[in-house]
Design a protein around this nucleic acid. Structure first.
Length: 902
RNA sequence: GCCGUUGUAGCUCAGGGGUAGAGCGCUCCCUUGGUAAGGGCGAGGUCAAGAGUUCAAAUCUCUUCAAUGGCACCA
């Protein structure tokens, strides 16, 4: 088949769909289903074929779902704010607005060629003012709420204010408790501000001089910036924070309600880092307090030193002494390098007998040991350093644990339970409960759930991001901007570059001198209304104040935290998404989106942030589902061969020809070494899907990409697309002939119906490679199809090769009456169970472990009849010279005949 | 160190208690008026290794090995 012919067919079909406005989605009476790809950054270099795996997969699923009678929400917009877009603008020395615009257009044309069935009327970019207006609006909602730990939900901040005013509640360690307070008005205001879910705080931040901005913990990998791999320094700065830690428990526990890949769930759980234990305070003689967190409070009487994180030097030394809260013994305090300042309280109670790191530290610094838990004998035997009689093992352990290889970190009965006032024999599980009672009754400490998760740093010293809807008065107090004045638009500014390598960050917006200061009045609800020149004169001068805008911008995660909601209601200018639309698309579901497809690299960033925003908006009553995404799938990463010349420089794939597994550089004729690498700019091995479509056709390309491997598995780009081309040509030709000749009967209806069954099942389970394999198999085994059956095959083919399917369908439609206008309007075919039932089966005859022949028999043949058939079989007779036993194995039907000679 | 995933033909992957499969690549043949192409025949495997369960194991169970992803002085 001539490629120009195929291109023509595909162009015509695209036009046909465009005219019919096939992809437009409206609320209707069908069952809704929403499919979403991860939000793409419109990068400067555009998409390569690796990116298309997920997109083609969701398109196949969307077409399949629609053909099954669902109303499918499937759209794509662009995450166009943020570092990637801005870095590209800096590198190419153009304004980000221009580069963003160009990049989006470039990407749209790449996506266009793939014929993804996105509803174009639902597309938007995060940089659109009528989009980021709502990003700012959501920020204000978060700013104006707090997390009520008593109800476990976010509430409007006014509720907290009135609670504190009522004097019935106190705030302790950021938690609300029912206890009378005597706060002053000023204290209340301060506490209320500190409890906001978006709050300003002086925090140690990750300052990246080379990027000229601070970064979130999640954006740091191995001490370097994830983007660009630049060094990162700690610095104290006043920054906006998001109180995500308040949601740690819900973020953790609700993971189990989601249909997500286990590795993503475990990554999020790791990141949130839930651990349960006790907070215990040790007092020093000088009155200083050491708050420690322990997951093993039952070892309280085994503490022989307190270890604090080593802040300044790396020298481990004793610095203080504390009193044990029960025994009143004196315990030394040491600085230890193994203690992490950021984790827990940065201080721990060291129990050398029962913690390996404490064990080693104590040995090194000659600190004593106090075993309190009894190990089992197997452990004692295995870990004893010197040989000792078995009866003496436990005594040795009790007196000198250094005679053993390591600390005993397991559980077990306490050696001296009386210390916890336990006097009867109880199980280890009950022992834990008693220890808890003891610690709580004696008020030594309290039981808490601790999380590794930190609050989310939300400020960036960048130009290309959403401005905060916040201003400051002369005293530095923050005020939200009046909701009705949103959006706060970015100033048109051509000096947008951050100042790199500065000692401290200076946000680029500081240079927007006309923008950064405003006149305004404080409204009754506490927000600021900004006034233009004419308005100022209508207010008394003592009401009008000068404010400075917040000069930092939001991180690019902000826009991607809620975009999935906007697809449901993209043009609404009275709310970010209406309840009616939510009720239609997501009623009674766990997640608002049914299926979410995207790479594992966002496991702890976007997927955690988006869940957090969702939960806040859910608590405040704006959303109807407890989670954003019900089912998540990660397409595998695609690698491709990269080519390196003798100097070790990567050569562009365009300049390479591969023959017999040797690579030659076309321009120089020199041999190249081949090695695989992640597809992309770095290895110069990115392949533009547009080129592939032009060269082989969209349908062939789509099927080829899907056939390489299961969607969720990493794969290597296979440049040899010929196999799929052959299949395409072959089935195209075959069906074309069938349509031209108009056969009345199909060769093998059973095979066709088996294919319906298997293609359907494979698509449902997201195994598109095997779905295509089933179609290839059908094509290899059946020659003639009736017109009706041609339609069925085209329907099966449609999700994968939509143009070819539609093209041939239109020919059939012109010959047959009563067919709907487009192939998608047909209901997905069902198989006839009667036609896939086997009547004949193959029965292997196994003689002493070797298959000697295979009989083809009717499925209902009895054992006796089979035995006669075997005895009559000349091929088998020669093996039956000696005596033998014969057995027919059945499972619903005869499976195998086993012959054992003796 | 902890948690997860994967080992099947040279490559990419199906299958999965009952004859070992597909596409590419490779051999050979046919087409020479679609030719930097098309079609056909064929060769290729101890299903990572070992043990167990079973009449029967690539498939189930356990152990080991190897790849790979994530987390990690987490108290």
């Amino acid at each position: 088949m001539d490629i120009s012919h195929i291109n023509l067919i595909e162009t015509n079909i695209k036009n046909l769909w465009k005219v019919a406005d096939l992809y437009r989605t409206e609320v209707n009476s069908k069952t809704p289903y929403s499919i979403l790809d991860f939000f793409p950054h419109p990068s400067g270099i555009g998409l390569h074929v690796g990116h298309t795996v997920g997109y083609i997969a969701t398109d196949i699923f969307a077409r399949f779902k629609r053909a099954n009678g669902y109303n499918v929400l499937y759209a794509m917009g662009f995450d166009s704010f943020g570092l990637p877009a801005e870095q590209f603008a800096i590198q190419t020395n153009q304004h980000p607005e221009i580069t963003t615009h160009n990049n989006i257009n470039n990407m749209l044309s790449q996506l266009e060629c793939l014929s993804l069935s996105h509803d174009p009327s639902r597309s938007f970019s995060t940089t659109d003012t009528d989009y980021y207006k709502w990003t700012q609006w959501i920020f204000l909602k978060i700013y104006n709420s707090y997390f009520n730990n008593l109800t476990g939900k976010a509430e409007p901040i006014e509720n907290l204010y009135s609670k504190l005013k009522s004097k019935k509640y106190t705030i302790e360690d950021g938690l609300l408790i029912e206890l009378e307070n005597n706060y002053s008005e000023e204290e209340i205001n301060q506490l209320v501000n500190s409890m906001r879910l978006a709050y300003l705080n002086d925090v140690e931040v990750n300052w990246c001089p080379m990027l000229g901005t601070v970064l979130a913990n999640e954006e740091i990998k191995n001490g370097k910036s994830e983007r660009g791999n630049h060094p990162v320094e700690k610095r104290k700065m006043k920054q906006w924070m998001m109180g995500i830690t308040a949601y740690a428990d819900r973020l953790y526990n609700q993971l189990d309600t989601l249909d997500w890949p286990t590795n993503i769930v475990s990554m999020q759980k790791n990141w949130i880092g839930k651990s349960e234990g006790a907070l215990i305070t040790f007092h020093s003689k000088t009155g200083k307090q050491y708050k420690i967190f322990t997951t093993k409070p039952e070892t309280l009487f085994g503490v022989t030193f307190i270890a604090v994180a080593n802040q300044e030097d790396q020298v481990e030394k004793q610095i203080d002494e504390v009193i044990h809260p029960i025994t009143k013994e004196t315990i030394p305090v040491w600085t230890a390098n193994y203690v992490i300042g950021d984790y827990g309280t940065g201080t721990l109670m060291a129990v050398p007998a029962h913690d390996q790191r404490d064990f080693e530290f104590a040995k090194q610094h000659n600190i004593n040991f106090k075993p309190v838990v009894r190990p089992n004998y197997a452990w004692l035997v295995e870990n004893a350093l010197e040989s000792m009689p078995q009866s003496q093992l436990l005594n040795h352990w009790k007196t000198d644990p250094t005679k053993f290889k390591s600390a005993y970190e397991g559980t077990g009965p306490l050696i001296t339970p009386q210390q916890f006032e336990i006097f009867e024999d109880i199980s280890v599980k009950n022992q834990k409960k008693q220890v808890r009672n003891f610690i709580e009754q004696k008020k030594i400490g309290k039981y808490v759930t601790q999380h590794k998760l930190r609050d989310w740093l939300f400020s960036r010293q960048r130009y290309w991001g959403e401005p905060f809807p916040i201003v400051f008065d002369k005293a530095g107090n923050a005020y939200p901007i009046d909701e009705n004045q949103l959006p706060v638009e970015l100033p048109q500014q051509y000096d947008f570059k951050p100042e790199l390598n500065q000692q401290s960050p200076r946000p680029p917006l500081e240079k927007a001198s006309n923008w950064k200061t405003v006149q305004g009045i404080i409204l009754d609800n506490g927000s600021v209304k900004i006034l233009n020149q004419n308005e100022i004169n209508t207010y008394p001068t003592n009401m009008v104040q000068t404010f400075t805008r917040e000069l930092n911008t939001m991180p690019n995660w902000a826009g991607s935290c809620w975009y999935y909601l906007r697809y449901m209601d993209p043009k609404n200018d009275s709310t970010f998404v209406s309840k009616e639309k939510l009720e239609y698309w997501a009623k009674d579901k766990i997640g608002t989106i049914d299926l979410y497809v995207g790479g594992a690299e966002h496991a702890v960033l976007h997927l955690l942030y988006a869940r957090f925003w969702h939960m806040v908006l859910f608590d405040l009553g704006y959303l109807i589902n407890p989670e954003p995404f019900t089912k998540l799938l990660n397409p595998g990463m695609m690698t491709a061969d990269a080519y390196m010349d003798e100097r070790g420089v990567y050569v562009d794939v365009e300049d390479v020809v591969v023959k017999n597994q040797t690579a030659i550089q076309i321009s120089t004729g020199k041999p190249l070494t081949i090695e695989p690498g992640k597809m992309g700019k770095r290895y110069k091995n990115g392949i533009d899907p547009k080129d592939m479509c032009a060269k082989y056709g969209v349908d062939v390309f789509r099927m080829h990409v899907m056939y390489i491997s299961p969607v969720t598995q990493s794969s290597t780009w296979n440049a040899n697309i010929k196999g799929m081309q052959r299949f395409y040509n072959s089935i195209h030709q075959k069906l074309q002939d069938c349509i031209d000749i108009e056969y009345s009967k199909t060769d093998d209806t059973s095979q066709l119906h088996k294919t319906i069954l298997s293609v359907t099942e494979e698509i449902v389970n997201f195994r598109f490679n095997t779905a295509i394999a089933a179609l290839i198999k059908l094509n290899n085994s059946v020659e003639k199809f009736s017109m009706n059956d041609c339609v069925i095959i085209l329907q099966l083919l449609y999700p994968f090769a939509p143009h070819l399917a539609e093209h041939l369908y239109q020919q059939i439609r012109s010959k047959m009456n009563n067919l709907p206008q487009l192939i998608e309007h047909l209901q997905w075919p069902t198989y006839d169970p009667k036609l896939i039932v086997e009547t004949k089966i193959k029965l292997p005859v196994n003689i002493d472990g070797k298959i000697r022949d295979v009989l083809e028999i009717d499925i209902n043949t009895t054992d006796d009849e089979i035995k006669i058939l075997i005895l009559q079989n000349t091929k088998i007779q020669k093996y039956l010279q000696q005596s033998y036993s014969l057995q027919i194995i059945r499972k619903d039907k005869p499976i195998i005949a086993n012959v054992t000679t003796t």
